[in-house]
């Protein structure tokens, strides 16, 4: 079994091949080297590589385009919708590979999936790297901003003041935090006893935020569904003949609502969509399918 010339570990997992010269490395190792050296030369033969083939996934990427990551991210962020809404739909097969492979602007690593994308400047981050950085500079607010363009992720309106206070207290009371602050990356990579509490606090915070997101998401969905039900009730009231059973009513309601969530990016956007008209149109389509 070959071993990776960078880490000397076996290439049985996560191997990729530089297409131009054929030399093999772990994907993460060669990308860390590219990131570090700021050029695309092969560490073994110094030939400038343009393409990298992921052997397991059989995907070839154009390194020159991928290098600044902008292209990939702009493609992805278009599908991501906004940061707050993380639906399962973004984990589509064709985006998975790119998402897994994007490097965090702060730590340069892609071992752990980056999960924050700035839509303004198309930069990827690990949420924890971004948050640790904010913590490091003494910013305890729940809003995090892009380090590149200072675009603020998320909206401040749903910031629960309780958790902010909780965190501020948490941070000032804990010993060992100073060490974690001066070595933010240590706490990210391997939570040591120093960094562990910081990691824990952010985990707590992310959970809170996740909950907020879900609440938010269901709020958007609830509003959209209200239109569907209103239209269904107005035009196809029970007994009018078009919809025969309660099950059919439920099925159509579900299918139409799902369609509407998707077209409006999981956000209730009454200024952009006339939900009543859209619902009516989609209901007609569903009826034709089932009828």
């Amino acid at each position: 079994m070959d071993s990776c010339p960078i880490c000397f570990e076996s290439l049985s997992k996560g191997a990729c091949r530089l297409v131009e010269c054929g030399h093999k490395y772990h994907f993460n190792c060669i990308r860390r080297w590219h990131y570090h050296s700021k050029n695309l030369q092969c560490p073994t033969c110094r030939i400038k590589s343009r393409h990298l083939e992921d052997i397991e996934r059989k995907v070839t990427i154009n390194l020159a385009e991928f290098s600044d990551a902008n292209l990939a991210i702009s493609e992805i962020s278009a599908q991501m919708g906004s940061l707050e809404i993380r639906s399962n739909e973004v984990r589509q097969e064709e985006t998975r590979w790119n998402l897994d492979s994007l490097e965090c602007r702060l730590c340069g690593e892609s071992n752990v999936r980056t999960n924050v994308f700035c839509q303004e400047c198309h930069t990827a981050y690990h949420e924890i790297c971004l948050r640790t950085l904010h913590l490091e500079v003494g910013d305890f607010s729940r809003c995090v901003a892009c380090c590149n363009c200072h675009h603020i992720f998320g909206s401040s309106s749903r910031e629960p003041p309780a958790s902010r206070e909780h965190l501020a207290r948490f941070l000032t009371e804990r010993p060992g935090l100073h060490a974690a602050r001066t070595h933010p990356h240590r706490s990210i990579r391997a939570p040591t006893s120093d960094g562990f509490e910081v990691v824990q606090s952010w985990r707590l915070l992310s959970e809170l935020q996740e909950k907020c997101c879900l609440l938010d998401l269901s709020e958007h969905k609830r509003k959209i569904q209200a239109h569907v039900r209103k239209v269904l009730n107005a035009h196809y009231s029970k007994g009018s003949g078009a919809i025969a059973t309660k099950d059919q009513y439920t099925e159509i309601n579900k299918a139409v609502s799902r369609n509407l969530y998707r077209v409006s990016d999981n956000k209730y956007q009454p200024d952009k969509f006339d939900y009543d008209v859209e619902a009516l149109r989609l209901i007609a389509i569903e009826l034709r399918k089932t009828g």
């Binding site: 880490c7 000397f8 570990e9 190792c29 860390r32």
Partner: peptide
């Protein structure tokens, strides 16, 4: 990569 020096050794 932290294991690399151990591997070299």
């Amino acid at each position: 990569m932290s294991q690399r020096l151990a591997k070299e050794y």
